[in-house]
Design a protein around this nucleic acid. Structure first.
Lengths: 186, 186
DNA sequence: ACTGATTTATGAGTAGGTACTAATAGTTAG
DNA sequence: CTAACTATTAGTACCTACTCATAAATCAGT
């Protein structure tokens, strides 16, 4: 900052700053706004912003609980040959419950679920989370078909993985997807 | 616990316990294992497990960065009429770059991206994250089509939302999806 | 009973606060 | 011009959840 601002303006900026950078301490904030640590504390108090440890904890908790519940959701398909951080294979046999009665075509979300499960399994982590997915359904999959999904980790940066999934029935591609999966330590 | 265990066994259980419940303090652990706080600290030291504040922080940081980068990814489609926590509408005009040259059919991921963007936008949060999605492509969408995606928040529990997206072209359903979206405060 | 491993206790120091009091500087109203 | 009020800063005691170092107590096996 350098310059000293008035109270109102500073508090507005302070709020924005903490929203963007929630893990910052009062000391760093004091330096940034060129005021004392006490002033920052009064500001936080006035704005109802909790201390940095509370902020960190709330982010961790809010995220951790859904992650855990996602993790518990069962695996779709049988995993074969998973090489962590590289790729893997999963097999799903299409049964009566997965298809539309009328035409015996598999409901799309089963293929999605198989692919998603595999993408998550391939990532080497206690807990993994699908950030986003782009999927394409290429051919209808029918009752009795055996769907073989193949995962390839396209790239990894930090704890972010891009996993490509190609699902085939009798060597014919039926589904293709790219999943961005995040890994976390705990 | 009640009973007192030997060192090795206790350390094994301690590690498992912290993996399941990473936000627990040494004091709680000491009570749980019926030993002193100092013993827990020696155990953590031996196992290379950092203190609770570090553990909380690492969960928050690992998750927060990818969340932020996801947030920055641009919105697909134009938002109209978003009622936070309830529903919304988005319009996407299909142009040359979104279709296959051969048959002028829209690449599936554009519909996915529009739906995903809308699902995230509808959630009332600074930052939101797609946990999982189930999508179905119902009819091919062609060059020049105007895709109207409609979002409905089906239920909300804590910071977890189930958002249904129905996309139509000229009142005909072309895409349907259910997105589970997580919201976070910061 | 002795010895070594294990456990517990004690004290000092740390970060990042809360909650409070007191002093000072700056602004505004009468 | 001065009293009143607001804003800022300083300082204190206390808190949690530790780390690191050292010492004492306890327990288990021979």
């Amino acid at each position: 900052m350098g310059t000293t601002l008035r109270k109102k303006e500073r508090q507005k900026l302070l709020k924005e700053y903490i929203e963007k950078e929630p893990f910052v301490t009062d000391e760093r904030l004091a330096k940034h706004f060129n005021v004392s640590v006490q002033t920052i504390r009064l500001d936080r108090l006035a704005l109802g912003i909790p201390q940095v440890r509370e902020r960190v904890k709330s982010v961790a908790e809010e995220i951790y609980e859904p992650l855990r519940s996602l993790q518990q959701s069962e695996l779709v398909g049988d995993l074969l040959d998973v090489q962590l951080e590289q790729g893997g294979l999963s097999v799903l046999d299409i049964n009566e419950s997965m298809v539309f009665k009328k035409n015996k075509i598999t409901r799309g979300h089963h293929l999605f679920a198989q692919a998603n499960s595999l993408a998550v399994a391939v990532v080497d982590a206690e807990v993994a989370l699908t950030g986003s997915a782009r999927v394409r359904y290429l051919k209808p999959v029918l009752l009795g078909d055996r769907v073989v999904a193949k995962a390839t980790v396209k790239y990894k940066r930090d704890n972010k993985y891009l996993v490509q999934i190609i699902s085939k029935v009798n060597d014919e591609m039926v589904f293709k997807g790219q999943f961005i999966v995040f890994a976390t330590k705990y």
